[in-house]
C-alpha cells in the first residue's frame, strides 16, 4: 500500500512539474528554463557566469515577494530575533540625502568575482563555483564568522539556532555561516532562482537572472543597453548582481 502511495506521489509530483513547465511555455511567462541547462552528471562550467540585474524602478516599496519566496524555498526559519535571525535577501529602502530621491531594492549576496569572504575563509569552505556562484561548503565551515566580518554587503548570516526539518535541497545547520546561493539547486536544473520567480509572480519583474557570459542572453543585452552599477564598485570586486536606477 505504501508503495502504491509512493508511486502515486511521484507520478503526481512529476505531472505537477510538467504542468508548470507546460503552462509557462504556453503562457509565455518568463519562467523560462534555460536552453543551455546542464544535465545532472555534468559539472558546472566557467563558460557560464550567473548574474542578476535589478531594475529598481520596478521594485515596489512594500513588496517582499523576493524575501518571502526565498524564505519559503530554503525553509529559513525566523525566531523573531531580527539581529541574529538569518537573512539571505532583504529589502532596503533608500532615500538620497541631498536630492530626496527614493529607491527600494533587494540586497543579497552579490556573488563577487573576487569575493572577500572567499579570501578570508581559513578552511576554504567559502568558495566560488566555476559558474561564479559564491557558496559556503557547510561540510568544512567551522563557524569562525570571519567571512561575515569581511563581506562588504552584510549578506552573510550565522546560524544561531538549532534547526530541524530543513529542505532536502537546502541543507543548513547551527554553527555555520550561510548566504544566498543563487538557488543553485534550481539553477543547475535550468530553473530560475526563487526570488526571481516570486518577483515575477507578483507582477513586478524587477529581477532578471541569466548568464552574463552569454552575449545573447537577455541579461547581457539589457546590461549592455541600460546603465546599471555594482555596489561598492570602489572595492573592484566585479559583482554578479547589478542595479539599475540607483
Amino acid at each position: 500500500m505504501m508503495n502504491d502511495n509512493s508511486i502515486d506521489h511521484y507520478r503526481r509530483r512529476f505531472l505537477k512539474n510538467a504542468g508548470v513547465t507546460a503552462a509557462s511555455a504556453v503562457g509565455g511567462v518568463q519562467l523560462i528554463n534555460f536552453a543551455n541547462a546542464k544535465s545532472d552528471d555534468q559539472a558546472v562550467a566557467d563558460s557560464v557566469r550567473w548574474g542578476m540585474l535589478v531594475d529598481t524602478s520596478k521594485c515596489a516599496t512594500d513588496c517582499t515577494a523576493c524575501v518571502d519566496s526565498c524564505n519559503e524555498e530554503h525553509g529559513l526559519e525566523l525566531f523573531d530575533r531580527p539581529e541574529s535571525d538569518v537573512q539571505w535577501i532583504r529589502k532596503v529602502e533608500l532615500q538620497n540625502k541631498s536630492t530626496g530621491h527614493q529607491v527600494s531594492l533587494p540586497m543579497l549576496c552579490q556573488h563577487c568575482e573576487n569575493p572577500p569572504c572567499v579570501d578570508v575563509c581559513p578552511t576554504g569552505a567559502s568558495f566560488k563555483r566555476d559558474d561564479g556562484v559564491v557558496l559556503v561548503n557547510k561540510h568544512t565551515c567551522i563557524g569562525c564568522r570571519y567571512c561575515v566580518m569581511a563581506c562588504p554587503y552584510l549578506a552573510r548570516s550565522f546560524v544561531h539556532e538549532n534547526l530541524e526539518n530543513q529542505r532536502s535541497w537546502s541543507p543548513r545547520g547551527k554553527g555555520t555561516v550561510e548566504s544566498c546561493n543563487f538557488c543553485v539547486h534550481r539553477v543547475d536544473k535550468g530553473e530560475q532562482p526563487a526570488c526571481v520567480v516570486g518577483c515575477q509572480s507578483d507582477g513586478h519583474k524587477a529581477l532578471l537572472f541569466g548568464d552574463l557570459n552569454d552575449p545573447d542572453s537577455e541579461i547581457s543585452n539589457r546590461a549592455n543597453t541600460i546603465s546599471s552599477r555594482e555596489l561598492r564598485a570602489d572595492l573592484s570586486l566585479n559583482t554578479a548582481v547589478r542595479y539599475e536606477g540607483l
Binding site: K38, Q42, A43, V44, H139, D188
Partner: peptide
C-alpha cells in the same frame, strides 16, 4: 558525492544522501 555536488554542481541521484533517506 558530497564534494561532487557541492563543489561542482553534479546532481546525479544514485548516490545522493536524500536517496538514502
Amino acid at each position: 558525492q558530497r564534494d561532487e555536488t557541492v563543489l561542482k554542481g553534479i546532481r546525479t541521484k544514485k548516490h545522493s544522501l536524500v536517496g538514502c533517506i
